[in-house]
């Protein structure tokens, strides 16, 4: 059976559900779950004060319902199990998670999957900035795992990411893959400015069509049919990432960022790259 957490009030104050994760709550008696401390504004309150609680997390699943826009850190640091969110969530969804899956039917705020080390996150709606990114000062963003976003994403997705995959069905903001060390970012809508700035290695696919404004430190390498794409496509389709227009045929390849090592790849649809 799943544990169902339903938010009933409508207040705008931030709620942080640190530790409310299947791997943590599993095996906890219901009363203890109700008393589990979460943050509400500047206070610490029991989980039951904010959420109606039903069921139990014996099968390592938690379902969230209700107004969750200001509920932050859902699934942060989770290591196993499944979280299903019906609605839109706040910030730091799946941040630093190391395993398990999280599904969101609506939107999510900034820092989705920031510094995650493994696991699978899929969001049907749109997300904020810094998907899979490094926290301030830190050298590495996500180091493994998958983040799939059906809608669009904000700026600096995949900042300093080391491994793993981010796929955005819609558009993305500026500086996608800033300082990326390795890993894969795919964007199926339009893309903001300066993708791949200071990327060392890794792959960024910008498949929205239309011009892609590249930095002068990216160099055109030719027009190829990328081998890796079919593999990823199969993999992502399997996990339910659908409704996007996978490119077929040849793509333009650019190498960069020459300032940082130059082993990164940016792929665009034919004629997309505008240096």
């Amino acid at each position: 059976m799943a544990l169902l957490l339903r938010r009933t009030d409508e207040s705008d104050l931030p709620i942080e559900v640190i530790g409310v994760r299947p791997d943590r709550l599993r095996g906890m008696p219901p009363a203890e779950i109700g008393r589990f401390p979460i943050r509400h504004g500047n206070r610490t309150v029991p989980l039951a004060e904010v959420f109606q609680i039903k069921g139990d997390p014996s099968d390592e699943r938690i379902d969230f319902e209700g107004n969750l826009r200001n509920v932050h850190r859902i699934g942060a640091q989770m290591s196993a199990g499944r979280i299903v969110v019906d609605g839109c969530t706040g910030w730091h969804l799946a941040a630093q998670m190391s395993g398990g899956t999280i599904e969101v039917s609506g939107d999510a705020g900034d820092w989705v999957g920031a510094e995650m080390t493994n696991g699978h996150v899929s969001i049907c709606g749109s997300v904020g900035d810094l998907v899979g990114a490094s926290y301030p000062g830190s050298r590495r963003g996500m180091t493994n795992g998958t983040i799939l976003v059906g809608g669009s994403a904000g700026a600096e997705i995949g900042r300093s990411m080391r491994r793993g995959t981010i796929a955005i069905g819609g558009a993305c903001g500026d500086h996608a893959g800033l300082g990326m060390i390795a890993g894969t970012i795919l964007v199926f809508g339009s893309c903001g400015r300066y993708p791949g700035a200071e990327m060392r290695r890794g792959t960024i696919g910008l498949f929205g069509g239309g011009p892609v404004p590249l930095l002068p430190t990216f160099r055109r390498a030719g027009r190829f049919r990328p081998q890796f794409l079919a593999l990823i496509e199969r993999e992502l389709r399997r996990t339910g990432f659908a409704g996007v227009d996978w490119p077929s045929g040849k793509l333009d390849l650019y190498h960069g960022d020459l300032l940082s090592l130059g082993k990164g790849e940016i792929w665009t649809r034919e004629g997309g790259g505008l240096a």
């Binding site: 705008d12 104050l13 931030p14 200001n70 706040g90 705020g109 900034d110 820092w111 920031a114 810094l130």
Partner: peptide
């Protein structure tokens, strides 16, 4: 890198 304090 905390919360959207402005709205909160």
């Amino acid at each position: 890198a905390g919360l959207p304090s402005a709205t909160a």
